[in-house]
Nucleic acid binder design. Sequence first.
DNA 1: CCGATCTGCAACTGATATGTTGCATCAAGG
DNA 2: CCTTGATGCAACATATCAGTTGCAGATCGG
Lengths: 113, 113
Amino acid sequence: MSASPAPGVVEVCGALADDTRWQVLQLVGTEALSASELAERLPVSRQAIARHLGVLAAAGLVEPERAGKQLRYRAIGARLSLLAQQLDAIGRGWDARLERLKAIAEAEAGTAR
Amino acid sequence: MSASPAPGVVEVCGALADDTRWQVLQLVGTEALSASELAERLPVSRQAIARHLGVLAAAGLVEPERAGKQLRYRAIGARLSLLAQQLDAIGRGWDARLERLKAIAEAEAGTAR
DNA sequence: CCGATCTGCAACTGATATGTTGCATCAAGG
DNA sequence: CCTTGATGCAACATATCAGTTGCAGATCGG
């Protein structure tokens, strides 16, 4: 019914709106890492990393996997691709509306003359 | 050199990380509107709308066009589609790396046996 | 059982973003 | 010239977020 921008888009974009989280994603996109391991590679505390991982997991961009004592996270590319698909559809909708308006304007000019 | 997520992505995602800005985009994606006109349709003040339009314009998601005394904005779908393309490429990269790791693991198992 | 290590929860601080109100400015029309 | 309506700038209050430190709990190795 609603022409709203689909549920979850705002949340996922918010998760992607932080520089530190992109650094986390870049590392986790290469290999599964725990919060402690990420804290060793990034200039922030382990707890800050854990919070970022929580945000990313809530957005579906990462998923945890147990590895004995520690909890490693890996990036979910499909979630990012899904967002990309949604955004592209919205963007095409805007431009399509513009094209249609232009076409109507030209048609009006044609019939009026 | 860097495998960084391309310049501007974080900024554009930040612009898309607010609910009010999505409402603005939805309206401006249908027809070009000024800050005052948007303020009439949304439950926030004109100045707040103007700030949001500034953020969206800085991200390239909207563009102003003069209409006599007032300044109307229209949504730029191409900018959103460009972001979508960048995000999809990154997402596919993550999954591709995963697939490659799985393939290597299987090959290792094969040669080792 | 005990020490070491990794994870989880809570409180606190500083920065940033959203939204407001008020005032200044500038163009169009009578 | 003066009024009207629109934009632009600035100060302010509030809320949320990123980051820190401190401590408690859980889990593996000896």
